[in-house]
């Protein structure tokens, strides 16, 4: 069975600047994977290439076995991508937004409505189903975007900083929801700057710096490879400081 996400030799330049520089990554199905890296390391560019929003200069990306460049529709059908600043339609209400997203993924109306109502209820937005998105707080927008990402029941979820702007209760809700999806076989790849979240949730962690994976493995593997007993923060700072070499776990 193919991996949920298979990236090989990925390169992307903006002018002379390399945003992604020969990145390789393989994430098996049903894994909760955290992609960490300092600002400008190439995380968002990588995720946008995976989601089919940016074209890579070189390399290949396969989502559930489908090449995103050669068969984008098949790859995208399996995928949900949530950017760090979710784009929503301010003048639509929650149900209208979810109806539209479901339609984009070809979900039949009845199934879409049932899923939309269930997701809004799960995320605590059921009483906001007829409120326009422009009236929502940042956290509510984030939750609605997540509902949009889940409505077509994707096999692979790519989330860029999904917990930004959420209060403690909402963050817990989202984390539980993601873990529950992973238990049901969904693969989740998220980026976060809150290292404790990665440490607590992710089965495996990849650390990206200067457009390359500099370390990868479970928390224990990363600790072992870095030769210490430190926290993820210690390992991360050690690996991403200027001039540091990578570790292969």
């Amino acid at each position: 069975m193919s991996a949920a996400l298979e990236i090989q030799g990925l390169r992307k330049h903006y002018g002379s600047e390399a945003a992604v520089d020969g990145l390789d990554l393989s994430i098996p199905r049903g894994e909760f994977h955290a992609l960490l890296g300092p600002n400008g390391a190439g995380k968002t560019t990588t995720l946008r290439i995976v989601a089919g929003l940016v074209r890579a200069d070189l390399g290949s990306v396969r989502v559930m076995g489908h090449d995103i460049a050669l068969d984008p529709a098949a790859a995208k059908r399996e995928l949900a991508y949530l950017p760090d600043d979710p784009q929503l339609y301010g003048k639509l209400d929650s149900l209208e937004y979810l109806e539209f997203v479901a339609g984009l993924w070809g979900i039949e109306a009845e199934a879409a409505r049932a899923r939309a109502e269930a997701l809004l209820a799960t995320l605590g937005l059921e009483d906001k189903s007829r409120d326009r998105v422009e009236t929502f707080s940042r956290g509510m927008r984030q939750k609605l975007a997540l509902a949009g990402g889940l409505i077509h029941e994707p096999a692979l979820m790519i989330l860029d900083e999904p917990l930004t702007g959420l209060d403690a209760a909402a963050a817990r809700l989202v984390k539980d929801l993601l873990l529950e999806r992973v238990k049901r076989g969904c693969t989740v790849v998220l980026t976060t700057h809150i290292l404790e979240i990665a440490e607590r949730l992710a089965e495996r962690i990849s650390i990206i710096d200067h457009g390359r994976i500099v370390a990868q493995g479970t928390m224990d593997e990363l600790r072992g490879a870095s030769g210490g007993q430190g926290t993820l923060e210690d390992i991360f700072l050690e690996l991403t400081r200027e001039g540091a070499g990578g570790v292969a776990a």
Binding site: G52, L53, Q87, L104
Partner: peptide, 13 residues
């Protein structure tokens, strides 16, 4: 278009 990324990541032409 307010959500170009949403449309671009959808499996439609």
């Amino acid at each position: 278009e307010e959500a170009p990324d949403l449309l671009a990541s959808a499996p439609v032409d």
